[in-house]
Simulated scan of single mutants.
Amino acid sequence: MPIVVDIDVMLARRKMSVGALADAIGITPANLAVLKNGRARAVRFSTLDALCVALECQPSDLLRWEPAESSASIPTA
């Protein structure tokens, strides 16, 4: 998936544990781990807002887009 989740980077910068962040935003550590590890298929804006408040950051600090590497997009000679 070309969307990369960088919650772990912000956790390290803020010296915060997954459990503390989960408590701060009102979700279970298991659900936060799903999001943090990039396995979530969607994220609610309310969750993204809570993450930004708790981590004092912008959405772009947590999510970024990287193009998918695909042999179909590479021209052949």
Rank of each mutant, 00 (worst) to 15 (best):
G19M: 14
G19C: 15
G19L: 13
G19F: 13
G19Y: 15
A20L: 14
A20H: 15
A20N: 15
A20G: 15
L21Y: 13
L21E: 11
L21Q: 09
L21W: 14
L21I: 13
D23S: 14
D23E: 15
D23I: 06
D23V: 10
D23C: 10
D23R: 15
A24W: 04
A24E: 07
I25A: 10
I25D: 04
I25C: 04
I27L: 11
I27D: 04
T28A: 12
T28K: 13
P29D: 10
P29R: 14
P29C: 08
A30M: 03
A30Y: 08
N31C: 09
N31L: 14
N31M: 12
N31P: 02
N31H: 14
L32T: 01
L32F: 01
L32S: 05
L32I: 00
L32W: 01
A33G: 06
A33I: 02
V34P: 00
V34Y: 05
V34C: 02
V34E: 06
V34N: 09
L35W: 06
K36H: 04
K36G: 04
K36L: 05
N37C: 02
N37D: 10
N37R: 10
N37H: 11
N37T: 10
G38W: 05
G38V: 08
G38F: 02
G38Q: 06
G38P: 07
G38S: 09
R39Y: 10
R39E: 13
A40R: 06
A40N: 04
A40W: 01
A40M: 03
R41S: 11
R41V: 09
R41I: 06
A42Q: 10
A42K: 12
A42E: 09
V43I: 15
V43P: 04
V43F: 07
V43C: 13
V43M: 15
R44I: 08
R44D: 15
R44P: 05
R44N: 14
F45H: 09
F45D: 13
F45K: 06
S46W: 08
S46R: 13
S46A: 15
S46Y: 11
T47L: 08
L48W: 01
D49E: 13
D49W: 02
A50C: 03
A50K: 10
A50D: 06
L51Y: 00
L51M: 03
L51A: 02
L51H: 01
L51N: 00
L51W: 00
V53M: 07
V53S: 03
V53Q: 05
A54D: 01
L55H: 00
L55W: 01
E56Q: 14
E56K: 12
E56I: 03
E56V: 08
E56S: 14
E56G: 12
C57N: 08
C57D: 09
C57H: 06
C57I: 08
C57T: 09
Q58H: 11
P59C: 12
P59A: 11
P59N: 09
S60G: 14
S60V: 09
D61S: 04
D61E: 06
L62Q: 10
L62C: 06
L62K: 08
L62R: 06
L63K: 01
L63S: 02
L63T: 04
R64Y: 05
R64N: 05
R64K: 12
W65F: 11
W65S: 02
W65V: 01
E66G: 01
E66N: 07
E66L: 09
E66Q: 11
P67H: 07
P67R: 11
A68H: 06
A68E: 13
A68G: 03
A68R: 12
E69P: 06
